[in-house]
């Protein structure tokens, strides 16, 4: 729906901030805040790079190396639905409410497939810490080679979680005017829009970390570079991957039209979830075989 940042800035700062008379004022103001807050705090658990050694101290390029990083992220992401749900409900507008209902059912449905796809990764690496998972992919042992189906499920669910095309039913203009943010204007609309972008960035970072080796670059160790340069190069490489995924998000947006609602539910519950479970079972079987039963 929204394409460029000048538009966003203009929309956010120079427009009248309007609150509808029948809206629930408190929740109406709270919802964009929740959406934005939840989108931003996910970044804390993502490892943006290795360690920098400066002036005798080691600095890890990760805000918090949680040992349950993945659990934290999927937990926080599922809170994100509250922002949208409250926003749509508090607007007291039927289009907004319909958009919010669609958004919440869609996000809940696709979280399941996503969660099970991640479980396969966790089973392989034996750790819930994102940094640990990234470190295990050093060299060229990227998880994408072992979990192609899992990645496919994950990326599809990521599209649905971020409400991007082809799953942008919560805000589809033709049916719902603007969906859950129909009544929003100015900076609050800006917050909703911006949280969508942040979510897109975070899921790109997650895809890069979980499946594409995060900050690891293949064959970089053989160059014999100092540790700090390696770390910075790794961060740059992670951002290159993230930018590619963001481009992919846009690329899909330019290409694929929106799903119908029943197709969306069909895909989520009857295709992606069973596929994810099969993928998990196969991974479990492979691990068993490798460890000699």
């Amino acid at each position: 729906m929204v394409y460029c940042s000048p538009w966003l800035t203009e929309q956010s700062f120079f427009k009248e901030d309007f609150t509808p008379a029948h809206a629930d004022k408190f929740l109406f103001n709270l919802a964009p805040g929740i959406a934005m807050f939840v989108a931003l705090i996910t970044g804390a658990a993502i490892p943006w790079g290795g360690t920098l050694h400066l002036f005798g101290t080691d600095y890890a390029l990760q805000i918090a190396d949680l040992n349950i990083g993945i659990l934290y992220i999927s937990g926080v992401v599922s809170i994100g639905v509250y922002g949208i749900m409250l926003g749509g409900w508090a607007s007291n507008n039927k289009f907004a409410l319909l958009g919010a209902i669609r958004a919440s059912s869609q996000m809940i449905s696709y979280e399941i497939g996503m969660g099970i796809a991640i479980i396969a990764i966790v089973m392989m690496s034996g750790s819930l810490s994102l940094d640990e998972i990234v470190r295990q992919q050093a060299g060229f042992h990227w998880n994408i080679f072992y979990q192609p189906i899992g990645f496919l499920i994950f990326i599809t669910c990521a599209f649905a979680e971020c409400n991007r095309t082809p799953f942008d039913l919560p805000e589809c203009e033709q049916e719902l005017v603007g969906g859950y943010h129909t009544e929003y204007s100015s900076m609050k609309l800006g917050f909703f829009m911006f949280s969508e972008y942040v979510n897109m960035f975070i899921s790109s970072a997650l895809m890069a970390s979980l499946y594409f080796g995060g900050y690891n670059m293949p064959f970089i160790d053989q160059l014999g570079l100092p540790q700090n340069v390696l770390t910075l190069l790794g961060t740059a490489f992670l951002f290159a991957k993230i930018f590619f995924f963001i481009f992919f998000f846009m690329w899909i947006r330019w290409t694929i039209p929106r799903f119908r609602y029943d197709q969306l539910m069909h895909l989520g519950w009857k295709v992606l979830m069973p596929l994810a479970i099969v993928n998990m079972l196969l991974t479990g079987g492979a691990i068993l075989l490798k460890n000699g039963l």
Partner: peptide
């Protein structure tokens, strides 16, 4: 859907 999506992405590119 995947082959069709890949073709579509190619056309977009």
């Amino acid at each position: 859907y995947l082959p069709a999506i890949a073709t579509g992405l190619g056309i977009t590119l």
